[in-house]
Design a protein around this nucleic acid. Structure first.
Lengths: 194, 194
DNA sequence: GCTGAACGATAACATATGTTATCAAGTTTC
DNA sequence: GAAACTTGATAACATATGTTATCGTTCAGC
């Protein structure tokens, strides 16, 4: 949410630089839980290498709702700024290299930034982007079949299909692992008559 | 998006008042198309009485994605400010009384407002609310069954169930009209053994 | 009041999707 | 390197959901 915007708003670069020293580099194995549903977020996370997923628990099983890759940053803004419990958990999928900024400094940074006119512009842009993201996901569920949603992934976010274990993708698409497997084999057949 | 925020940001009330004279009162019958998918939005709409829906076309049939009621205002901000084609159509469900503000004045109003510090705050709040709305809808599709989604509607947005024809609700929930009918009859049975 | 459209329930059948179980291959851990 | 775990494919069966058609009711427009 913050550092991955470096250079997108050059006017604010000085701020990122100022807080770089407070970052901590962390190397963590796969399946490391970084934030647990119900807890309060204690840090901003930037992904140097690896990938993460956001998920929630429903009747005992995981439902993955989002994926994150290199050069992306995460902070549940709400959980963070308003200090409310996070509705989701975050964990690594691959062994990852992360840079984290403790909440204390992140809030301090936001406080400094909020005096800058460009900050508003940045927050608005980020907010609009996210709104757009969730709206597209939502509309896609109404409009598209699971098969079409999978093909969208293949076309627009091939990273996910290539790097993420299939059962996470299945819940993200809203289907069972078995059904996603069926979708794949059906698509494979369709292609094979070159 | 604008006038329905009157009194929520009292500091800005003078602006709304200034533009009231440019509003047009419109009484329209049910099923009146107010904005067509692919066209550019030409007005801000405030609902005095009645209800509307937003929908899009998929392979020849409607998919309803949102409902609007009294005291709500609509403007596809993006389609509006950026002058891009609207991805959705808007039409009345009930005979309605609307107040519309032509694009020309709406843009002028936004321009004036943008100099106010409270405007940023307002836009951020609206933006956050919408982001939250779409995120909840999205997560609900991953997490909940259609039956649970219907029960959520009943509990959290009873207006929709009471006033909107069932086939619109069905597509909003992502199921066929027949299946929604089945869900209802199943729930009715469950309740009847008082 | 008549008439056609809109609405909603239901049945019958077809298809999509979930569940459980099994197997095979690949990976990690010790 | 053996054992345990993870991943993914597949089969068999159960359930959920879609499609088409029919019917009765209500309602708007004339």
């Amino acid at each position: 949410m913050i550092f991955h915007f470096k250079n997108k708003f050059p006017q604010l670069n000085a701020y990122w630089d100022k807080y770089l020293p407070f970052q901590k580099k962390q190397e963590v194995p796969a399946k490391t839980l970084l934030l647990q549903e119900g807890r309060r977020s204690q840090q901003y996370i930037f992904i140097e290498k690896g990938c993460l997923r956001a998920f929630l628990n429903k009747d005992g099983n995981d439902k993955t709702v989002q994926f994150f890759f290199e050069q992306e940053g995460l902070a549940s803004f709400e959980s963070f700024v308003n200090n409310v419990p996070s509705p989701i958990s975050i964990e690594t999928i691959e062994p990852s290299i992360l840079y984290t900024l403790p909440k204390k400094y992140a809030l301090q940074l936001i406080d400094e930034l909020s005096k800058e006119p460009y900050f508003t512009q940045m927050v608005l842009q980020i907010s609009a982007q996210r709104q757009n993201h969730y709206m597209n996901e939502f509309v896609s569920f109404i409009r598209d079949t699971p098969e079409q949603r999978y093909q969208n992934l293949l076309k627009k976010r091939p990273q996910i299909v290539q790097r993420v274990p299939q059962h996470y993708i299945a819940s993200y698409l809203g289907v069972s692992t078995v059904h996603l497997s069926r979708i794949k084999s059906k698509l494979a057949k369709g292609k094979s008559h070159f």
